[in-house]
Design a protein around this nucleic acid. Structure first.
Lengths: 242, 242
DNA sequence: AAGTGGTCTAGACCACCCC
DNA sequence: GGGTGGTCTAGACCACTTG
């Protein structure tokens, strides 16, 4: 075998392109700077626009780029860390994390949530919607599901009810919490709140809080995957949070 | 305004397709079942193959489908939970999580890791590679970065060295840990280990463990985002782990 | 060899933003 | 109105797996 590197498979064009662009971003562009448009970039690299777009999509997935229809493609700032989990005074405090409640009412939760709450399928619970804003932009939207018995007072609809339920949760004695994180794509409804197109990648955080007598709340939080790094401080430290 | 719903923007075809397919998956297909091939599906729905593929990509991102080149598209089983964080005897125990060490040696860590370790840029550390197997398939690959002073003995290269460093870590008194989770795409090197194509979405978990005298280890773990749900048990409970 | 998903092309039109 | 990214098409070829 006189050849040196035959077993190497040809790298896909878009993959190589991604590497080249990534290096260029590091060396030749500043955060916030706007890139040449897709048609020009494609021409410059001698590929079809679709191929170029495949590379850009990857870079956007990694949080390196930000693309906005009608505007252009800009170099994204590094992801910022958003704190998840036991922080500050209570898990439902508005102020700390930048949460802003938007209303609530009774609904039938999704089956997966009902299972976590250990309520019968089809049973109604109180659902509370809130959105989290950090660094001046929306990073997450959340639905809190509270079984009726956990909020014993009369609960009307709307913002006022939401605030009252939230306050009641703050007074609750929570014993434990379990949490899971998985990849999802943003549903049409949440997309608007997060200022993204439907289908954009999100990190879905599901948390179940339990009181002495069983599950008290299930929170389903949807975080923008492009701009956020979720941080967990398990033992009082917080250096990854930058 | 005699019209009922004019402000509704026409839904993209691939988005609508995704919904239709998603419903079909729930009602007409069993886990593991193989779907008709892309060319036929595209014809059946009257769209171009590229458009169909956009819908399939979304469903794969959500863990509903699994596509393998040369084989076909199958219905994926529900994601399984993999435990992250303080579990069992120690954070570096092989047995519990299915970790399998693959070797190690000295290297210069990436800048981001050096910053977390608080070592000077360009300083060499010991890097240990291991891979995690659950439910019979690889779910994660990890690089553990250990500054030299934390492993004071002489450290040769290879598997033997890795095992020795791992044992030393087990004896270390760790005081705290901080963790972050973000979306990434798998690098070519890790792709093989995880049995995925380069660029596939992954959840990158970065953990810094500290001992009394400062940072002791930084672990960068790369989890398959299509098959895994990361679970965190913060207060002794573990019901989301299923 | 046949069949699958993965890559790539060249072009068109649309939705959105800003001037 | 003019420019941007987002969607969509119809076709070609390639890499991989399986009989």
């Amino acid at each position: 075998m006189g050849t040196t590197q035959l077993e190497t498979v040809p790298e896909p064009k878009y993959w190589h392109l991604k590497t080249v662009l990534s290096d260029a971003l590091d060396s030749e562009f500043a955060v916030g700077e706007i890139l040449p448009n897709e048609r020009e970039l494609a021409a410059r690299f001698g590929v079809a626009r679709a191929t170029l777009r495949q590379a850009l999509e990857q870079l956007e997935l990694e949080g390196r780029l930000q693309r906005r229809r009608g505007v252009g493609t800009t170099v994204a700032p590094p992801r910022f860390g958003v704190g998840i989990g036991p922080a500050g005074e209570g898990p439902f405090a508005d102020a700390e994390g930048g949460w802003q409640t938007e209303g609530g009412g009774e609904t039938v939760p999704p089956a997966a949530v009902a299972r976590l709450l250990e309520t019968p399928a089809g049973a109604r619970v109180f659902a509370l919607r809130r959105t989290r804003v950090t660094h001046g932009q929306p990073v997450a939207t959340e639905l809190l599901y509270v079984p009726e018995q956990a909020v014993p007072e009369e609960t009307p609809e709307g913002d006022e009810a939401a605030r009252r339920v939230l306050a009641a949760l703050g007074r609750l004695g929570l014993e434990s919490q379990e949490r899971s994180v998985e990849l999802g794509s943003v549903r049409a409804e949440d997309a608007r709140r997060l200022d993204r197109l439907p289908g954009a990648p999100v990190l879905v955080v599901t948390t179940r809080y339990a009181a002495q007598d069983g599950p008290a709340v299930v929170a389903v939080s949807t975080y923008r995957a492009d701009t956020c790094r979720l941080t967990f401080a398990d033992s009082g430290a917080e250096a990854l949070a930058g």
